[in-house]
Design a protein around this nucleic acid. Structure first.
Lengths: 232, 232
DNA sequence: TTTGAGAATTAGTCTAGGCTAAAGCCCTGT
DNA sequence: ACAGGGCTTTAGCCTAGACTAATTCTCAAA
Protein backbone atom coordinates (compact mmCIF):
# COMPACT_ATOMS: atom_id res chain seq x y z
CA UNK A 1 0.00 0.00 0.00
CA UNK A 2 1.22 3.43 -0.92
CA UNK A 3 1.02 5.73 2.06
CA UNK A 4 2.45 8.73 0.24
CA UNK A 5 -0.21 11.09 -1.04
CA UNK A 6 1.76 13.13 -3.43
CA UNK A 7 -0.07 16.13 -4.81
CA UNK A 8 -1.02 17.35 -1.33
CA UNK A 9 -4.64 18.30 -0.81
CA UNK A 10 -4.86 22.08 -1.19
CA UNK A 11 -4.06 23.40 2.29
CA UNK A 12 -6.83 26.01 2.11
CA UNK A 13 -5.29 29.20 3.37
CA UNK A 14 -7.10 31.67 5.52
CA UNK A 15 -8.09 35.06 4.30
CA UNK A 16 -5.43 36.64 6.41
CA UNK A 17 -2.67 34.40 5.13
CA UNK A 18 -3.72 35.13 1.56
CA UNK A 19 -3.45 38.85 2.21
CA UNK A 20 0.01 38.55 3.71
CA UNK A 21 1.25 36.52 0.77
CA UNK A 22 -0.05 39.08 -1.69
CA UNK A 23 1.68 41.87 0.20
CA UNK A 24 4.97 40.05 0.25
CA UNK A 25 4.65 39.39 -3.46
CA UNK A 26 4.08 43.03 -4.29
CA UNK A 27 6.81 44.25 -1.95
CA UNK A 28 9.38 41.88 -3.40
CA UNK A 29 8.45 42.30 -7.05
CA UNK A 30 11.56 44.39 -7.62
CA UNK A 31 13.70 41.77 -5.85
CA UNK A 32 15.02 41.94 -2.33
CA UNK A 33 13.20 41.44 0.93
CA UNK A 34 9.87 42.63 2.22
CA UNK A 35 10.35 44.27 5.59
CA UNK A 36 8.13 43.85 8.59
CA UNK A 37 7.13 47.48 8.71
CA UNK A 38 6.34 47.69 4.99
CA UNK A 39 4.05 44.70 5.28
CA UNK A 40 2.48 46.15 8.42
CA UNK A 41 1.79 49.41 6.67
CA UNK A 42 0.38 47.79 3.57
CA UNK A 43 -2.02 45.65 5.57
CA UNK A 44 -2.70 48.26 8.22
CA UNK A 45 -1.71 46.06 11.15
CA UNK A 46 0.86 46.56 13.89
CA UNK A 47 4.41 45.30 13.24
CA UNK A 48 4.27 42.59 15.92
CA UNK A 49 1.27 41.07 14.13
CA UNK A 50 3.47 40.76 11.08
CA UNK A 51 6.30 39.12 13.02
CA UNK A 52 3.84 36.59 14.37
CA UNK A 53 2.41 35.78 10.98
CA UNK A 54 5.86 35.57 9.40
CA UNK A 55 6.75 32.93 11.94
CA UNK A 56 3.68 30.87 11.09
CA UNK A 57 4.18 31.29 7.36
CA UNK A 58 7.79 30.22 7.45
CA UNK A 59 6.82 27.17 9.50
CA UNK A 60 4.39 26.17 6.76
CA UNK A 61 7.00 26.79 4.10
CA UNK A 62 5.33 29.67 2.32
CA UNK A 63 8.02 32.25 3.03
CA UNK A 64 11.70 32.41 3.88
CA UNK A 65 12.34 34.58 6.88
CA UNK A 66 15.72 36.15 7.60
CA UNK A 67 15.36 37.63 11.10
CA UNK A 68 15.79 41.38 11.24
CA UNK A 69 16.13 41.42 7.43
CA UNK A 70 12.78 40.58 6.01
CA UNK A 71 11.03 37.86 4.06
CA UNK A 72 10.77 36.42 0.58
CA UNK A 73 8.29 33.98 -0.91
CA UNK A 74 9.22 30.36 -1.41
CA UNK A 75 8.16 28.86 -4.76
CA UNK A 76 5.09 27.50 -3.00
CA UNK A 77 4.29 30.90 -1.50
CA UNK A 78 4.77 32.54 -4.87
CA UNK A 79 2.33 30.12 -6.48
CA UNK A 80 -0.26 30.90 -3.83
CA UNK A 81 0.28 34.65 -4.19
CA UNK A 82 -0.02 34.51 -7.97
CA UNK A 83 -3.20 32.53 -7.68
CA UNK A 84 -4.68 35.27 -5.51
CA UNK A 85 -3.52 37.95 -7.91
CA UNK A 86 -5.06 36.07 -10.81
CA UNK A 87 -8.33 35.84 -8.92
CA UNK A 88 -8.24 39.50 -8.07
CA UNK A 89 -7.55 40.67 -11.60
CA UNK A 90 -10.03 38.33 -13.26
CA UNK A 91 -12.66 39.54 -10.82
CA UNK A 92 -11.85 43.16 -11.57
CA UNK A 93 -12.11 42.47 -15.27
CA UNK A 94 -15.37 40.60 -14.93
CA UNK A 95 -17.01 43.23 -12.75
CA UNK A 96 -16.01 45.92 -15.20
CA UNK A 97 -16.96 44.14 -18.40
CA UNK A 98 -20.01 42.20 -17.36
CA UNK A 99 -21.57 44.07 -14.49
CA UNK A 100 -20.94 47.66 -15.40
CA UNK A 101 -18.56 48.49 -12.58
CA UNK A 102 -16.49 51.61 -12.77
CA UNK A 103 -12.74 50.92 -12.77
CA UNK A 104 -12.41 52.93 -9.57
CA UNK A 105 -14.80 50.70 -7.67
CA UNK A 106 -13.69 47.20 -8.62
CA UNK A 107 -10.71 46.95 -6.33
CA UNK A 108 -12.56 46.92 -3.03
CA UNK A 109 -15.12 44.43 -4.29
CA UNK A 110 -12.46 42.11 -5.70
CA UNK A 111 -10.49 42.35 -2.50
CA UNK A 112 -13.27 40.59 -0.61
CA UNK A 113 -14.38 38.21 -3.34
CA UNK A 114 -10.93 36.86 -4.12
CA UNK A 115 -10.97 34.94 -0.85
CA UNK A 116 -14.32 33.31 -1.53
CA UNK A 117 -14.33 32.31 -5.20
CA UNK A 118 -13.48 28.81 -6.35
CA UNK A 119 -10.96 28.00 -9.02
CA UNK A 120 -13.83 26.84 -11.15
CA UNK A 121 -15.65 30.15 -10.92
CA UNK A 122 -12.55 32.11 -11.82
CA UNK A 123 -11.95 29.94 -14.86
CA UNK A 124 -15.56 30.37 -15.97
CA UNK A 125 -15.26 34.12 -15.64
CA UNK A 126 -11.97 34.12 -17.51
CA UNK A 127 -13.59 32.05 -20.20
CA UNK A 128 -16.61 34.36 -20.44
CA UNK A 129 -14.18 37.26 -20.88
CA UNK A 130 -12.07 35.50 -23.50
CA UNK A 131 -9.04 34.89 -21.28
CA UNK A 132 -8.05 38.50 -20.79
CA UNK A 133 -4.35 39.24 -20.32
CA UNK A 134 -4.69 42.56 -18.54
CA UNK A 135 -7.05 43.85 -15.89
CA UNK A 136 -8.89 47.19 -16.14
CA UNK A 137 -5.88 49.03 -14.71
CA UNK A 138 -3.57 47.45 -17.26
CA UNK A 139 -1.94 45.06 -14.84
CA UNK A 140 -1.03 41.68 -16.33
CA UNK A 141 -3.18 38.75 -15.24
CA UNK A 142 -1.19 35.67 -14.20
CA UNK A 143 -2.10 32.53 -16.12
CA UNK A 144 -3.85 29.63 -14.43
CA UNK A 145 -0.47 27.91 -14.52
CA UNK A 146 1.03 30.70 -12.44
CA UNK A 147 3.02 32.66 -14.98
CA UNK A 148 2.97 36.40 -15.09
CA UNK A 149 4.26 38.81 -17.67
CA UNK A 150 7.01 41.07 -16.46
CA UNK A 151 7.29 44.22 -18.45
CA UNK A 152 9.93 46.94 -18.21
CA UNK A 153 7.79 49.93 -17.56
CA UNK A 154 8.81 53.46 -16.71
CA UNK A 155 6.70 55.88 -14.69
CA UNK A 156 5.56 58.80 -16.78
CA UNK A 157 7.35 61.04 -14.27
CA UNK A 158 10.64 59.50 -15.36
CA UNK A 159 9.99 59.21 -19.06
CA UNK A 160 12.22 60.92 -21.60
CA UNK A 161 11.02 64.37 -22.59
CA UNK A 162 10.37 64.45 -26.31
CA UNK A 163 9.67 60.74 -26.51
CA UNK A 164 6.50 58.90 -27.24
CA UNK A 165 5.09 56.34 -24.84
CA UNK A 166 2.06 54.14 -24.40
CA UNK A 167 0.37 54.26 -21.03
CA UNK A 168 0.35 50.63 -20.04
CA UNK A 169 -0.66 50.37 -16.41
CA UNK A 170 -2.08 52.59 -13.71
CA UNK A 171 -0.54 51.60 -10.42
CA UNK A 172 -3.19 52.82 -8.07
CA UNK A 173 -6.45 51.66 -6.58
CA UNK A 174 -7.92 54.81 -5.09
CA UNK A 175 -11.34 55.45 -6.61
CA UNK A 176 -11.03 59.24 -6.63
CA UNK A 177 -7.68 59.27 -8.44
CA UNK A 178 -8.90 56.68 -10.91
CA UNK A 179 -12.02 58.69 -11.66
CA UNK A 180 -9.92 61.75 -12.26
CA UNK A 181 -7.56 59.92 -14.58
CA UNK A 182 -10.42 58.48 -16.58
CA UNK A 183 -11.87 61.97 -16.97
CA UNK A 184 -8.52 63.15 -18.28
CA UNK A 185 -8.47 60.32 -20.79
CA UNK A 186 -5.46 58.78 -19.10
CA UNK A 187 -6.35 55.10 -19.30
CA UNK A 188 -4.30 52.07 -20.30
CA UNK A 189 -3.54 51.82 -23.99
CA UNK A 190 -3.42 55.56 -24.63
CA UNK A 191 -0.43 56.93 -26.57
CA UNK A 192 1.24 59.99 -25.13
CA UNK A 193 3.88 62.35 -26.37
CA UNK A 194 6.01 63.72 -23.55
CA UNK A 195 6.26 67.39 -24.33
CA UNK A 196 7.90 68.82 -21.27
CA UNK A 197 8.59 68.44 -17.60
CA UNK A 198 8.98 71.20 -15.05
CA UNK A 199 12.06 71.10 -12.86
CA UNK A 200 12.13 70.20 -9.15
CA UNK A 201 9.69 67.32 -9.36
CA UNK A 202 7.27 69.43 -11.29
CA UNK A 203 4.51 68.16 -13.54
CA UNK A 204 4.98 66.35 -16.82
CA UNK A 205 3.17 67.77 -19.83
CA UNK A 206 1.89 65.29 -22.39
CA UNK A 207 -0.04 65.42 -25.64
CA UNK A 208 -2.77 62.90 -26.35
CA UNK A 209 -3.69 61.39 -29.71
CA UNK A 210 -6.38 64.01 -30.27
CA UNK A 211 -3.84 66.81 -29.96
CA UNK A 212 -4.99 68.03 -26.56
CA UNK A 213 -2.48 68.29 -23.73
CA UNK A 214 -2.50 67.34 -20.06
CA UNK A 215 -0.45 68.59 -17.16
CA UNK A 216 0.24 65.66 -14.87
CA UNK A 217 1.60 66.35 -11.38
CA UNK A 218 4.51 64.31 -10.17
CA UNK A 219 2.49 62.28 -7.70
CA UNK A 220 0.15 61.02 -10.40
CA UNK A 221 2.88 60.77 -13.01
CA UNK A 222 4.68 58.28 -10.78
CA UNK A 223 1.67 55.99 -10.98
CA UNK A 224 1.36 55.99 -14.76
CA UNK A 225 3.57 53.21 -16.04
CA UNK A 226 4.52 53.48 -19.66
CA UNK A 227 6.49 51.65 -22.30
CA UNK A 228 8.45 53.54 -24.90
CA UNK A 229 6.78 53.64 -28.29
CA UNK A 230 9.18 55.29 -30.68
CA UNK A 231 8.21 53.73 -33.97
CA UNK A 232 4.59 53.17 -34.94
CA UNK B 1 -26.24 68.86 18.73
CA UNK B 2 -27.96 65.61 18.00
CA UNK B 3 -26.00 62.75 19.51
CA UNK B 4 -28.43 60.10 18.38
CA UNK B 5 -27.33 58.37 15.20
CA UNK B 6 -30.51 56.68 14.22
CA UNK B 7 -30.15 54.31 11.28
CA UNK B 8 -27.19 52.51 12.84
CA UNK B 9 -24.17 51.92 10.66
CA UNK B 10 -24.41 48.36 9.34
CA UNK B 11 -22.84 46.26 12.10
CA UNK B 12 -21.02 44.03 9.61
CA UNK B 13 -21.61 40.51 10.83
CA UNK B 14 -19.04 37.79 10.72
CA UNK B 15 -19.34 34.83 8.45
CA UNK B 16 -20.15 32.63 11.37
CA UNK B 17 -22.90 34.86 12.68
CA UNK B 18 -24.46 35.02 9.24
CA UNK B 19 -24.55 31.24 9.08
CA UNK B 20 -26.20 30.93 12.46
CA UNK B 21 -28.88 33.44 11.54
CA UNK B 22 -29.67 31.58 8.34
CA UNK B 23 -30.02 28.33 10.24
CA UNK B 24 -32.34 29.83 12.79
CA UNK B 25 -34.42 31.30 10.00
CA UNK B 26 -34.81 27.98 8.24
CA UNK B 27 -35.51 26.08 11.44
CA UNK B 28 -38.20 28.49 12.54
CA UNK B 29 -39.86 28.96 9.16
CA UNK B 30 -42.78 26.79 10.28
CA UNK B 31 -43.05 28.78 13.51
CA UNK B 32 -41.81 27.78 16.94
CA UNK B 33 -38.31 27.72 18.29
CA UNK B 34 -35.03 26.52 16.83
CA UNK B 35 -33.38 24.16 19.26
CA UNK B 36 -29.72 24.09 20.13
CA UNK B 37 -29.20 20.61 18.81
CA UNK B 38 -30.99 21.27 15.53
CA UNK B 39 -28.81 24.29 14.89
CA UNK B 40 -25.72 22.31 15.88
CA UNK B 41 -26.59 19.55 13.46
CA UNK B 42 -27.38 21.93 10.62
CA UNK B 43 -24.07 23.77 11.02
CA UNK B 44 -22.06 20.71 11.95
CA UNK B 45 -20.76 22.13 15.21
CA UNK B 46 -21.01 20.87 18.78
CA UNK B 47 -24.01 21.96 20.86
CA UNK B 48 -21.97 24.05 23.30
CA UNK B 49 -20.71 26.12 20.38
CA UNK B 50 -24.31 26.92 19.63
CA UNK B 51 -25.08 27.87 23.23
CA UNK B 52 -22.12 30.24 23.18
CA UNK B 53 -23.17 31.87 19.94
CA UNK B 54 -26.78 32.15 21.05
CA UNK B 55 -25.62 34.07 24.06
CA UNK B 56 -23.66 36.52 21.90
CA UNK B 57 -26.47 36.88 19.38
CA UNK B 58 -29.07 37.64 22.01
CA UNK B 59 -26.76 40.22 23.54
CA UNK B 60 -26.58 41.97 20.19
CA UNK B 61 -30.33 41.74 19.79
CA UNK B 62 -30.44 39.45 16.78
CA UNK B 63 -32.26 36.60 18.48
CA UNK B 64 -34.51 35.99 21.43
CA UNK B 65 -33.23 33.18 23.59
CA UNK B 66 -35.48 31.25 25.95
CA UNK B 67 -33.08 29.11 27.97
CA UNK B 68 -33.59 25.38 27.56
CA UNK B 69 -36.31 26.10 25.00
CA UNK B 70 -34.65 27.49 21.94
CA UNK B 71 -34.35 30.69 19.97
CA UNK B 72 -36.26 32.84 17.53
CA UNK B 73 -35.12 35.73 15.38
CA UNK B 74 -35.86 39.30 16.38
CA UNK B 75 -37.07 41.56 13.57
CA UNK B 76 -33.48 42.73 13.18
CA UNK B 77 -32.19 39.17 13.03
CA UNK B 78 -34.84 38.26 10.51
CA UNK B 79 -33.83 41.14 8.28
CA UNK B 80 -30.21 40.03 8.40
CA UNK B 81 -31.16 36.42 7.67
CA UNK B 82 -33.35 37.39 4.73
CA UNK B 83 -30.56 39.51 3.33
CA UNK B 84 -28.26 36.49 3.38
CA UNK B 85 -30.91 34.31 1.78
CA UNK B 86 -31.44 36.90 -0.92
CA UNK B 87 -27.72 36.97 -1.59
CA UNK B 88 -27.54 33.22 -1.71
CA UNK B 89 -30.43 32.81 -4.11
CA UNK B 90 -29.42 35.65 -6.41
CA UNK B 91 -25.95 34.16 -6.58
CA UNK B 92 -27.33 30.73 -7.40
CA UNK B 93 -29.47 32.23 -10.12
CA UNK B 94 -26.61 34.24 -11.56
CA UNK B 95 -24.17 31.35 -11.59
CA UNK B 96 -26.73 29.18 -13.33
CA UNK B 97 -27.93 31.68 -15.90
CA UNK B 98 -24.78 33.60 -16.67
CA UNK B 99 -21.89 31.28 -15.98
CA UNK B 100 -23.27 27.94 -17.04
CA UNK B 101 -23.31 26.32 -13.62
CA UNK B 102 -25.28 23.17 -13.12
CA UNK B 103 -28.06 23.53 -10.56
CA UNK B 104 -26.42 20.84 -8.45
CA UNK B 105 -23.20 22.79 -8.08
CA UNK B 106 -24.38 26.29 -7.30
CA UNK B 107 -25.16 25.80 -3.64
CA UNK B 108 -21.61 25.26 -2.41
CA UNK B 109 -20.27 28.17 -4.42
CA UNK B 110 -23.02 30.53 -3.24
CA UNK B 111 -22.48 29.41 0.32
CA UNK B 112 -19.00 30.94 0.29
CA UNK B 113 -19.72 33.95 -1.89
CA UNK B 114 -22.74 35.15 0.04
CA UNK B 115 -20.45 36.30 2.84
CA UNK B 116 -18.21 38.31 0.54
CA UNK B 117 -20.48 40.10 -1.93
CA UNK B 118 -21.58 43.67 -1.45
CA UNK B 119 -25.16 44.83 -1.63
CA UNK B 120 -24.24 46.67 -4.78
CA UNK B 121 -22.97 43.55 -6.51
CA UNK B 122 -26.08 41.59 -5.60
CA UNK B 123 -28.31 44.30 -6.99
CA UNK B 124 -26.30 44.43 -10.21
CA UNK B 125 -26.62 40.68 -10.60
CA UNK B 126 -30.34 40.81 -9.85
CA UNK B 127 -30.67 43.55 -12.42
CA UNK B 128 -28.72 41.62 -15.04
CA UNK B 129 -31.07 38.69 -14.45
CA UNK B 130 -34.22 40.81 -14.62
CA UNK B 131 -35.04 40.66 -10.92
CA UNK B 132 -35.79 36.96 -10.71
CA UNK B 133 -38.38 35.84 -8.16
CA UNK B 134 -37.21 32.25 -7.80
CA UNK B 135 -33.84 30.60 -7.65
CA UNK B 136 -32.86 27.56 -9.73
CA UNK B 137 -34.38 25.22 -7.16
CA UNK B 138 -37.66 27.12 -7.22
CA UNK B 139 -37.15 28.78 -3.85
CA UNK B 140 -38.52 32.32 -3.61
CA UNK B 141 -35.95 35.11 -3.57
CA UNK B 142 -36.54 37.72 -0.85
CA UNK B 143 -36.83 41.27 -2.16
CA UNK B 144 -34.18 43.84 -1.39
CA UNK B 145 -36.69 45.26 1.09
CA UNK B 146 -36.71 41.97 2.98
CA UNK B 147 -40.00 40.46 1.96
CA UNK B 148 -40.35 36.83 1.03
CA UNK B 149 -43.18 34.95 -0.58
CA UNK B 150 -44.67 32.26 1.60
CA UNK B 151 -46.41 29.60 -0.38
CA UNK B 152 -48.46 26.70 0.89
CA UNK B 153 -46.66 23.82 -0.68
CA UNK B 154 -47.17 20.11 -0.17
CA UNK B 155 -44.46 17.50 -0.58
CA UNK B 156 -45.16 15.19 -3.48
CA UNK B 157 -45.09 12.34 -0.98
CA UNK B 158 -48.18 13.78 0.67
CA UNK B 159 -50.06 14.92 -2.39
CA UNK B 160 -53.52 13.61 -3.19
CA UNK B 161 -53.50 10.57 -5.46
CA UNK B 162 -55.40 11.35 -8.63
CA UNK B 163 -54.70 15.06 -8.39
CA UNK B 164 -52.62 17.27 -10.58
CA UNK B 165 -49.79 19.38 -9.16
CA UNK B 166 -47.03 21.68 -10.30
CA UNK B 167 -43.59 20.98 -8.94
CA UNK B 168 -42.65 24.31 -7.42
CA UNK B 169 -39.55 23.85 -5.34
CA UNK B 170 -36.89 21.23 -4.76
CA UNK B 171 -35.88 21.33 -1.13
CA UNK B 172 -32.43 19.86 -1.38
CA UNK B 173 -28.92 20.94 -2.13
CA UNK B 174 -27.10 17.66 -2.67
CA UNK B 175 -25.52 17.65 -6.12
CA UNK B 176 -26.07 13.95 -6.77
CA UNK B 177 -29.76 14.01 -5.97
CA UNK B 178 -30.25 17.18 -8.00
CA UNK B 179 -28.50 15.67 -10.99
CA UNK B 180 -30.72 12.63 -10.77
CA UNK B 181 -33.88 14.72 -10.53
CA UNK B 182 -32.87 16.81 -13.54
CA UNK B 183 -32.29 13.61 -15.51
CA UNK B 184 -35.76 12.47 -14.60
CA UNK B 185 -37.21 15.76 -15.77
CA UNK B 186 -38.29 16.65 -12.26
CA UNK B 187 -37.45 20.34 -12.16
CA UNK B 188 -39.41 23.35 -10.91
CA UNK B 189 -42.35 24.31 -13.09
CA UNK B 190 -43.15 20.82 -14.30
CA UNK B 191 -46.77 19.67 -14.08
CA UNK B 192 -47.35 16.22 -12.63
CA UNK B 193 -50.35 13.96 -12.38
CA UNK B 194 -50.23 11.84 -9.25
CA UNK B 195 -51.26 8.41 -10.46
CA UNK B 196 -50.65 6.22 -7.47
CA UNK B 197 -48.78 5.74 -4.26
CA UNK B 198 -47.64 2.47 -2.76
CA UNK B 199 -48.55 1.84 0.86
CA UNK B 200 -46.15 1.90 3.83
CA UNK B 201 -44.21 4.95 2.73
CA UNK B 202 -43.77 3.53 -0.70
CA UNK B 203 -43.01 5.48 -3.85
CA UNK B 204 -45.35 7.91 -5.56
CA UNK B 205 -46.01 7.33 -9.23
CA UNK B 206 -46.50 10.39 -11.38
CA UNK B 207 -47.11 11.14 -15.04
CA UNK B 208 -45.32 13.96 -16.77
CA UNK B 209 -46.67 16.23 -19.45
CA UNK B 210 -45.21 14.04 -22.18
CA UNK B 211 -47.14 11.02 -20.93
CA UNK B 212 -44.15 9.19 -19.46
CA UNK B 213 -44.27 8.12 -15.83
CA UNK B 214 -41.82 8.26 -12.95
CA UNK B 215 -41.60 6.25 -9.78
CA UNK B 216 -40.41 8.56 -7.02
CA UNK B 217 -39.26 7.01 -3.75
CA UNK B 218 -40.55 8.49 -0.53
CA UNK B 219 -37.27 10.09 0.43
CA UNK B 220 -37.13 12.11 -2.76
CA UNK B 221 -40.86 12.70 -2.88
CA UNK B 222 -40.61 14.47 0.47
CA UNK B 223 -38.25 16.99 -1.11
CA UNK B 224 -40.45 17.85 -4.07
CA UNK B 225 -42.75 20.64 -2.98
CA UNK B 226 -45.81 21.09 -5.10
CA UNK B 227 -48.86 23.26 -5.37
CA UNK B 228 -52.19 21.82 -6.45
CA UNK B 229 -53.07 22.60 -10.03
CA UNK B 230 -56.55 21.29 -10.61
CA UNK B 231 -57.87 23.49 -13.39
CA UNK B 232 -55.63 24.49 -16.27
C1' DT C 1 -44.03 12.13 43.40
C1' DT C 2 -40.04 10.79 42.12
C1' DT C 3 -36.63 9.50 38.91
C1' DG C 4 -33.93 9.04 35.00
C1' DA C 5 -32.91 10.02 30.07
C1' DG C 6 -31.89 13.39 27.01
C1' DA C 7 -31.13 18.16 25.92
C1' DA C 8 -28.95 22.51 27.26
C1' DT C 9 -25.75 25.04 29.61
C1' DT C 10 -21.48 26.07 32.10
C1' DA C 11 -16.62 25.51 32.89
C1' DG C 12 -12.34 25.31 31.12
C1' DT C 13 -9.11 24.78 27.08
C1' DC C 14 -7.31 25.71 22.43
C1' DT C 15 -5.99 28.30 18.06
C1' DA C 16 -5.74 32.19 14.96
C1' DG C 17 -4.76 36.60 14.71
C1' DG C 18 -4.97 40.85 16.49
C1' DC C 19 -2.87 44.44 20.19
C1' DT C 20 0.62 47.15 23.53
C1' DA C 21 4.75 47.41 26.15
C1' DA C 22 9.28 45.98 26.71
C1' DA C 23 13.52 44.18 25.11
C1' DG C 24 16.94 43.17 21.44
C1' DC C 25 19.45 43.95 17.18
C1' DC C 26 21.74 46.70 13.58
C1' DC C 27 23.76 50.45 11.65
C1' DT C 28 25.06 55.06 11.10
C1' DG C 29 27.24 59.23 12.76
C1' DT C 30 30.35 61.15 15.63
C1' DA D 1 34.69 52.41 18.73
C1' DC D 2 30.49 53.19 20.47
C1' DA D 3 26.16 55.53 21.45
C1' DG D 4 21.74 56.32 20.00
C1' DG D 5 17.79 55.81 17.06
C1' DG D 6 14.88 53.03 14.55
C1' DC D 7 13.36 48.49 13.31
C1' DT D 8 12.18 43.91 14.80
C1' DT D 9 11.11 40.64 17.86
C1' DT D 10 9.44 38.76 22.27
C1' DA D 11 6.30 38.67 26.09
C1' DG D 12 1.93 38.88 27.56
C1' DC D 13 -2.89 39.85 26.83
C1' DC D 14 -7.47 39.86 24.35
C1' DT D 15 -11.51 38.19 21.46
C1' DA D 16 -14.09 35.08 18.48
C1' DG D 17 -15.38 30.77 17.97
C1' DA D 18 -14.41 26.16 18.15
C1' DC D 19 -13.98 21.76 21.45
C1' DT D 20 -14.62 18.23 25.59
C1' DA D 21 -16.12 17.20 30.14
C1' DA D 22 -19.05 18.18 33.76
C1' DT D 23 -23.24 20.03 35.40
C1' DT D 24 -28.07 21.42 35.31
C1' DC D 25 -32.56 21.49 33.60
C1' DT D 26 -36.98 19.48 31.77
C1' DC D 27 -40.30 16.35 31.08
C1' DA D 28 -42.34 12.02 30.72
C1' DA D 29 -42.99 7.56 32.71
C1' DA D 30 -43.44 4.73 36.67
Amino acid sequence: MNTIRSPQPPPSLTRSVEDYLKSVFHLTSQGGFATTSDIAEMLDVAPPSVSGMMKRLSETGLIEHVPYRGVQLTPQGRRAALQMIRRHRILESYLTSKLGYDWGDVHVEAERLEHAVSEKLIERMADALGEPRYDPHGAPIPTAAGEIEEAELVPLAESVVGGSVVLQEVGDEHPARLHYLAEQGLTPGVRLTVIDRQPFNGPTIVRLGDGTTRVVGQELALLLFCRPSDGE
